[in-house]
């Protein structure tokens, strides 16, 4: 007996310490970055004293401020469009039977599987061709030609955000028993009323999760944006990339810290909202699934290899973990 116990403790210890190392691996580089954003030394990785100068310098950096505003503008517009289009797509794919459904599904999920770099160069080729023709048609010369900028970035962002929203909302739809909607219709509700009064309230956590995912993806996207942005309109990641390629300045550490803080806030805020929404609509049968943290990324669960099993039981929570950003 005692031998077996001892045998079981050693692996546990190994697993625990390996996990601690993985967490350290995740957080040490970021923690060092945050710490050194308060370092008063202009260059190098030697601690010279505490300062918040680099943060106040950010406020005077016009390029950075413009890029931040561009990023927010693009993310808000793209998210708004993508949430509507993605929810519609998920309804079509999950609540309708039609010819070519599988083919449509392949197209819808193309942004999820296509390598970003290929999408980037393909869009560059596409936009330069179409804008070239457009400028010829409008008779615009080199001076007043329409170039790539905010509109082209938004077109690209809406496309991949829509796919991810569709993915996330579809996961929610799968947990919603269609007989609820059928019941509403049997009781005389039309399609529109059924959607607003039955379907949408039930899939709201999924829609919110999708919106948050779309917003984050748009805000963070680098590779695709890199190819479809013009000299006129850069986004925050593009601007930061440009700056950190030019110099290693503590300002870059400061802006990186702010980006990290913002995404952490966004995530925890979203977790709070989602668990509030889930609690409000769920009976007191308790916590939905292992964690509200998980519920924020419903897309993932949906890709869960085992999702089929959990989907059969409607009250269970498929909104676990298992996939991710492109």
């Amino acid at each position: 007996m005692s031998r077996r116990r001892r045998g079981a403790r050693a692996p546990k210890l190994a697993i625990g310490s390996a996990s601690a190392l993985v967490y350290a691996f995740f957080y040490v580089p970021v923690a060092v970055l945050v710490l050194f954003s308060f370092n008063s030394a202009r260059t190098g990785g030697r601690w010279a004293g505490f300062t918040t100068d680099w943060y106040s310098a950010l406020a005077d950096n016009d390029r950075l401020l413009t890029a931040t505003w561009n990023s927010l503008f693009i993310a808000i517009i793209s998210t708004a469009i993508a949430v509507v289009l993605g929810t519609m797509l998920s309804l079509a794919l999950d609540r309708r039977v039609f010819r070519g459904r599988i083919a449509a599904q392949q197209v819808v999920y193309l942004p999820v599987i296509a390598p970003e770099i290929v999408t980037g160069v393909a869009l560059l080729a596409f936009f330069s061709l179409t804008l070239g023709h457009l400028n010829d048609m409008l008779g615009r010369g080199a001076q007043d030609a329409i170039r790539m900028g905010r509109p082209t970035i938004i077109i690209a962002h809406v496309a991949f955000c829509t796919a991810f929203v569709a993915l996330v909302v579809r996961a929610s739809l799968r947990t919603l028993d269609p007989s609820l909607e059928e019941a509403a219709q049997d009781l005389g509700a039309n399609g529109w009323t059924t959607f607003w009064r039955v379907t949408l309230p039930s899939i709201m956590p999924g829609v919110l999760g999708g919106a948050l995912l779309a917003f984050t993806l748009s805000l963070d996207n680098f590779v695709i944006t890199f190819f479809v942005s013009g000299p006129g309109a850069t986004t925050l990641p593009i601007e930061v990339f440009g700056q950190l390629r030019r110099t290693i300045s503590p300002e870059v550490n400061a802006i990186s810290t702010l980006i990290f803080g913002a995404s952490t806030l966004l995530l925890t805020g979203a977790l709070g909202i989602q668990s509030a929404v889930s609690k409000r609509r769920s009976r007191p049968d308790g916590d939905r699934g292992p964690s509200s943290a998980a519920a924020v990324r419903p897309d993932i669960g949906h890709r869960n290899p085992d999702a089929g099993a959990s989907q059969k039981s409607y009250p269970s929570n498929p909104q676990l973990i298992g996939g991710g950003k492109p």
């Binding site: 995740f26 970021v30 963070d220 990641p237 930061v240 990324r297």
Partner: peptide, 10 residues
């Protein structure tokens, strides 16, 4: 999930 959500660039 926090590193999962943080920008790849950062």
């Amino acid at each position: 999930m926090i590193p999962f959500w943080t920008s790849m660039l950062v």
